[in-house]
Design a binder for these strands. Structure first.
Length: 1009
RNA sequence: GCCCUGGUGGUGGAAUUGGUAGACACGCAGGACUUAAAAUCCUGUCUGCAGCAAUGCGGGUAACGGUUCAACUCCGUUCCGGGGCACCA
């Protein structure tokens, strides 16, 4: 009987399906364990070998935990809303729901082949109404809540209204508008519009005005990655910033808790650092400087600084060009220069500002006065200061800040040195260790200590205060697109009203066209029946005529009748809470029953790529915290531990091509000087020679063309005039064997090139260049897992993906090594079945040597699996099988536990051999162990591993010279004696006495001479 | 520019706390079985020198320097690759 993996895998996959082997219950006496993968966006390109890497890792871990006696939740689903499906719909007229469903079918069949233990009863799909009903519902909770800074948690907006009615907003400063203040009396006197506007500035989900990338020519809003170098990716049309109504999540209110929460979770330090940097908490002070300007309209300038200790080193101020006060500060003499600069800034895209990093700016003609020594400080404007951060103005200290320093040098502004020898006149030094000089009352203080001294003084003088700032901004939460969750919001007279819960799910309407709406609105704005849809509103926070207007007839004043929101939610809406839905996926009464979420609690281990380091992970953490605050779940961090899988890189192949300059590359012929020639490709060594400039492309083209007996009727003059260039297009990896291009196969892919000339190596081979880069369909370097599963089986594929290297690291894919893993499984099979003899396992009692192999393997596999070191675990299996083969061990006592160990890695072969073992001799064993996936994990018996002696490495002066077998009980004096008697040690000693002998018990001996 | 990563044979990688560098595979070379191929098995495989050989000596973990009895591992400087970024005061 041979290892027939195709039949075995098919048989067990069916068996598992029939017996619902992977169905997970929400109640179990076993301890729970939740293993989660970042769910995929079901793209049309299907899976390549990079995708399953994380899924295999999590599958191994899930199966391992199951063997260890846990009730393991390991679900899978689809993040199914998104731009590509919408773009596909625009291009092909296929409804996104249809193309998405097709893609999902394809994904599913690919996933199924690999033998995952997902509980597919729990599949979620963010684009299904049953799912997005609850995304909308959670949005309504966020809309109906504010962040109470007194209690430090989200609370109902009703609480806030009650507080306003009692005390105005004195206890609750407005997060959206810091200067807003009103009394209880004023509050009650406001009309409904005013009151709802104020509440909007408190809500956790709110609507405001924001800038988007607007492309006039395409008539649509573009995502950042659809904008390249200031123009649209498609078509290359200009893109400008346009102000539009946008929804936001007030994630900034959670900044501190998101930061603190990082201490409670097991994320990598790099990941925590990235999130910490994104949140960007900094503390410092806001300081008001008096201003002296011609118009004297502007009395003072407020800046934010983290280094108030450097206040005596301020040599100039810089204000963001976008700030309105710029107009009022410019002097008559500088007006022209300022206006010119403002015009220049406006002309520059954000991209250009970021990419070029030019030093630009202009003096306003106004001065600020240093509050402590009255020094006049020129006020400049420059694009390096951002309007959106801090106060939009800075105090510039060139000796301590690199950008300020460059600016001062560029514009010849004199630099004050307040840090003595720490400043060398060439580069700024941001130290906090210097002792201050030229700093008035701060002289002789260490900078680090001076910070508090200055802030106290500033607060006493009433010219500023302590201030904490965050880099993080509120998260934009709306998109002007079709394929996303509609907002359950109706606008009436400019007021946003929540829909009643009975209206959920508010389903996407069918549309004829996915084209954008007018004025940057989404496609939904094109549908009158959507805008005017009759809906029931939630109980109003205030009684108003809105109640009556919703029942009024259609037509007439839209303001009165109201309009449904036409924006949709962004991709991350559905993914911010899907881990909760998996727990209770079919619940139509709640997003997840509280009892169920209390049972499953946090995701114990979350596996996915680093690309979601800030976006998805921060949003999920915020939603979890908000749901926790509002009492819907019992934990406030969604993910207990995070493992980041590395990327599997593709190995692309490029060939050389000689092309005429400025010609289209497609087509069967290339044109030069109005004459047509065949395309010409050159092998690697020729390509190298050309690169080394030893020959020109023209020469090669001409000589090869003639060598092929073809007419080349261009004079050298013409040739020099038109010229040829070198190009290196990618070819499909499947048309290449190693680095040798299969030209026939290549031509079936590009039939238009059937007459092309291929300049080969001397051995008649055509070689390609290798480039390691991201695996992608557009780079022709994808490897489809299906092909590998067909050829080698799922078990081989799973183990090989793990064998490639550490899960966390990026590594290039190379299919060649898969043979080694396949050989391993065949070798394992031969421990059970011999080709000639058939069944070879026995019921004989195992020897100590055999038990030692087994138990050292248990130890290694268990610890490697626990720490996600799957590559070394695979090699430990290989070592075990090699050793058992060498000592001809075919005993059930050894092989049965070995199969259990292997189950998480290679479930099919383990299941098959386990069944064989039990069927032929169903003697002992545990009762529930019908399937190996429910067997008990073998218990490590240390007693089989105990050694009495060790082969100690003996070093002389740190260099290994020999090894000696010494008892592990031996203590230093005894060891010294034995070692010094050794012949080789004697030789090195040359009769001398050693200076010292280092002995580390169980490790090594080092003789120092 | 800033932040995070990584750099070990021809290749992927191993070395878990500073303690025998190169496990386990791939590839390659040679051999066995076979009419042949596939499959399987065996041997060798970081590198220089010496030796018929076992083996011995030297070099070697991007480069240079340091700490240590001992460094792939810790510290410093430099170089190169990969990823992220919102010029955040």
């Amino acid at each position: 009987m041979e290892y027939n993996f195709r039949d075995i895998e098919k048989k067990w996959q069916e068996q598992w399906r029939r017996s619902n082997a992977y169905k997970v219950n929400n109640d179990s006496p076993k301890p729970k364990y939740y293993v989660l993968d970042m769910f995929p966006y079901p793209s049309g390109a299907g899976l390549h070998v990079g995708h399953p890497l994380g899924y295999i890792a999590s599958d191994i871990y899930s199966r391992y935990k199951r063997l260890k006696g846990f009730n393991v939740l390991h679900p899978m689903g689809y993040d199914a809303f998104g731009l590509p499906a919408e773009q596909y719909a625009i291009d092909h007229g296929i409804h996104p729901a249809v193309s998405t469903a097709n893609n999902i079918t394809n994904f599913r069949s690919q996933l199924d082949k690999i033998g995952f233990c997902f509980d597919w009863d729990r599949e979620v799909n963010t684009s299904k109404p049953e799912y997005y009903k609850w995304t909308q519902w959670i949005f309504l909770q966020l809309f109906g809540s504010f962040y109470n800074r007194q209690t430090n948690k989200a609370e109902s907006i009703q609480t806030l209204i009650a507080a306003f009615e009692k005390d105005g907003n004195t206890a609750h400063p407005c997060p959206g508008n810091a200067s807003l203040q009103f009394t209880d009396y004023e509050w009650t006197s406001f009309d409904e519009k005013r009151r709802t506007d104020i509440l909007m500035d408190y809500r956790l989900a709110y609507c405001g005005i924001g800038e988007v990338n607007w492309c006039e020519a395409l008539g649509t809003v573009l995502a950042n990655d659809e904008v390249v170098n200031g123009v649209s990716e498609r078509g290359g049309y200009p893109v400008i910033k346009k102000k539009l109504r946008q929804w936001y999540l007030r994630i900034t209110e959670y900044a501190d808790r998101l930061l603190e929460g990082l201490e409670k979770v097991e994320f990598s330090e790099a990941m925590k650092e990235m999130q910490g940097n994104w949140i960007g908490k900094s503390s410092g002070a806001e300081i008001d400087f008096n201003v002296k300007s011609e118009k004297s309209k502007v009395k003072n300038l407020r800046v934010y600084t983290t280094r108030p200790d450097t206040i005596f080193g301020v040599d100039f101020m810089v204000v963001a060009p976008e700030l309105d006060i710029v107009e009022d500060m410019k002097s008559a003499g500088q007006a022209a220069a300022v206006d010119e600069y403002l015009a220049y800034v406006k002309s520059r895209s954000e991209r250009e500002r970021m990419a070029e990093k030019k030093i630009t700016g202009v003096f306003t003609g106004a001065y600020a006065l240093n509050p402590f020594d009255g020094r006049e400080i020129p006020i400049w404007i420059s694009e390096y200061v951002l309007a959106g951060y801090g106060t939009g103005a800075i105090m510039a200290v060139p000796c301590g800040d690199e950008r300020d320093h460059k600016f001062a040098k560029h514009f010849n502004i004199p630099i004050t040195n307040i840090i003595g020898k720490y400043y060398d006149g060439v580069e700024a030094n941001p130290t906090k260790d210097a002792i201050l000089e030229n700093s008035g009352f701060l002289n002789d203080l260490v900078m680090r200590n001076a910070i508090e001294v200055v802030i106290d003084k500033i607060e006493q003088a009433g010219i500023g205060k302590r201030k904490v700032n965050y880099k993080m901004r509120d998260a934009a939460f709306s998109r002007q697109r079709y394929w996303g969750e509609p907002f359950p919001i109706k606008w009436i007279n400019g007021i946003a009203y929540a829909l009643d819960e009975s209206e959920l799910p508010l389903q996407l309407p069918e549309v004829d066209s996915y084209k954008p709406g007018p004025e940057g609105e989404g496609p939904l704005a094109n549908i009158p029946s959507w805008i005017h849809k009759k809906v029931k509103l939630a109980n109003k926070e205030f009684t108003s005529k809105a109640e009556s207007s919703q029942v009024s007839s259609f037509g007439g004043d839209l303001g009165e009748v109201g309009a449904l929101e036409t924006n949709t939610m962004p991709g991350y809406a559905g993914s911010s809470w899907y881990f909760l839905r998996y727990m209770d996926p079919h619940n139509d009464k709640a997003f997840c029953d509280r009892k169920v979420s209390d049972y499953w609690g946090q995701v114990d281990i979350y596996i996915g790529g680093t690309e979601h380091a800030v976006g998805h992970l921060l949003y999920s953490r915020m939603w979890t915290k908000a749901l926790y605050d509002l009492g819907y779940i019992g934990h406030d961090e969604p993910f207990k531990k995070l493992v980041n899988q590395g990327m599997i890189l593709g190995s692309s192949r490029r060939i050389g091509q000689i092309v005429p300059i400025d010609t289209q590359l497609s087509g069967t012929r290339v044109d030069v000087a109005k004459r047509q020639f065949r395309p010409m490709f050159i092998s690697l060594s020729y390509y190298q020679k050309l690169l080394d400039k030893r020959i020109t492309p023209e020469e090669v083209f001409k000589s090869i063309y003639q060598k092929n007996g073809l007419v080349f009727d261009i004079t050298d003059n013409e040739l020099g005039f038109y010229g040829f260039d070198l190009y290196n297009p990618r070819v499909r990896v499947e048309d290449v064997d190693g680095i040798e291009l299969n030209i026939e196969s290549f031509k079936t892919w590009r039939p238009e090139l059937k007459e092309a000339i291929f300049l080969k190596e001397e051995d008649n081979k055509f070689l390609c260049e290798i480039e390691v880069e991201k695996m992608s369909k557009s780079k022709f370097n994808t490897i489809n897992p299906d092909d590998l599963v067909i050829k080698y089986g799922a078990d081989t594929f799973r183990m090989y993906e793990m064998f490639l290297g550490p899960v966390e690291m990026s590594k290039p894919w190379d299919t060649k090594g898969i043979e080694g893993v396949h050989r391993f499984l065949k070798k394992l099979w031969r421990l059970f079945y011999d080709e000639i003899k058939g069944k070879v396992w026995t019921e004989e009692k195992a020897t100590d040597a055999e038990l030692k192999v087994l138990h050292s393997t248990i130890k290694k596999i268990e610890s490697d699996t626990e720490r996600f070191s799957f590559n070394t675990a695979v090699s430990a299996f290989m070592i075990a099988v090699n050793e058992l083969t060498d000592i001809k061990c075919h005993k059930r006592e050894i092989l049965e536990p070995l199969l259990v160990l292997l189950t998480p890695y290679a479930p099919h072969i383990s299941e098959e051999l386990y069944a064989q073992l039990r069927q032929v001799s169903p003697s002992g064993g545990d009762v529930e162990g019908a399937l190996v996936l429910d067997a008990h994990y073998p218990k490590l018996e240390e007693k089989y591993l105990i050694e009495s002696t060790k082969e100690y490495p003996i070093s002389i002066n740190g260099k290994l010279r020999t090894t000696m077998n010494i008892s592990l009980d031996a203590a230093q004096p005894e060891v010294e004696k034995i070692v010094l008697e050794n012949e080789i040690v004697q030789k090195w000693l040359e009769g001398k006495q050693p200076k010292k002998i280092i002995f580390v018990k169980g490790k090594m001996v080092n003789v120092v001479i």
